[in-house]
């Protein structure tokens, strides 16, 4: 089933160079290097979906904080955008594992805050339309008047993602978006993330996860984060160009023997 679909790698959008992190004498991350490019597919408006896959406790959350600009690494740099400036807090939207929202505001108000701070100036009518459009697209219209605590985890996750999209963040980091979900829900999240990635050409989703199958199924590129050897810091052990392998952008990829084989190999590697 797997076949390579046409694409072009264009501008550099995100560059992680020699990032290392340690606490006292304990090294957590060492020489993390990877790049994310604007992938252009003929006739399709689609952003990029990249995964950072690694086992629990390997330092993924620390890397998540560094990539979002909330933590400074001991060495190395993270550059973002076409101008490749050093990442600052707020440059990257984040969807944390526990989907933090403003609990004192209704879902509508949570989204309104996002759209009010959007980098693109909009009229009140446009803001309303934008909220309505995304709420409808992600089946949240009937929940707009509810408070976050009245929603399920999956619904909160959707609100959290839309909030970041409405702010106009092109880069969105997602921490373990498949964590604690059953198979059906995982497929729904994959569907949702594909939908988000299809919203604009610049949208870049960076998924940090230990779920190999779901992460690979949605990504165009995956970076495998693993320890070089026991008691050593984690680093990028392998880069998987899923587009080149013909494994990207296929909705039924999970049943592809080549894909299943790849998942098995990665399991062994990490």
């Amino acid at each position: 089933m797997s076949n390579k679909l046409p694409y072009q790698r264009e501008k550099l959008l995100f560059k992680v160079e020699n990032v290392s992190l340690s606490y006292d004498t304990r090294e957590i991350l060492q020489n993390i290097n990877f790049e994310i490019y604007d992938i252009v597919r003929p006739g399709i408006v689609q952003g990029q979906v990249v995964s950072l896959i690694g086992r629990s406790g390997i330092g993924k959350t620390q890397l998540f904080k560094i990539l979002s600009g909330f933590k400074k690494p001991n060495a190395g740099s993270v550059r973002i955008g076409v101008d490749q400036h050093l990442v600052q807090m707020g440059d990257v939207g984040i969807v944390p594992q526990d989907y933090i929202l403003f609990n004192h505001r209704s879902i509508y108000d949570n989204l309104k805050i996002a759209v009010n701070h959007c980098s693109k100036k909009m009229s009140d009518k446009e803001k309303e339309e934008s909220i309505g459009h995304y709420a409808n697209e992600f089946q949240l219209t009937e929940h707009l008047r509810k408070y976050p605590m009245q929603l399920s985890g999956g619904q909160r996750q959707r609100v959290s993602i839309i909030q970041q999209v409405l702010t106009g963040n092109s880069f969105i980091l997602l921490d373990e978006p498949f964590s604690g979900l059953d198979v059906v829900m995982k497929d729904k999240v994959i569907e949702l993330l594909v939908k988000v990635s299809l919203s604009t050409e610049e949208t870049t989703l960076i998924i940090v996860s230990h779920d190999i199958e779901s992460s690979l199924a949605i990504s165009d590129t995956a970076f495998i984060l693993a320890k070089q050897s026991e008691n050593k810091a984690a680093t990028i052990k392998q880069t998987l160009d899923l587009m080149e392998m013909g494994l990207a952008w296929h909705p039924e990829i999970k049943s592809d023997p080549e894909f299943i084989d790849l998942v098995g190999k990665i399991k062994y590697m990490i």
Partner: peptide, 20 residues
């Protein structure tokens, strides 16, 4: 994470203080 959310929503530190 609540302050971090404010940052990702492009709020200023003062806005974060008021909101959170």
């Amino acid at each position: 994470q609540e302050y971090e959310l404010c940052k990702t929503l492009k709020m200023s530190d003062w806005n974060a203080l008021v909101e959170v």
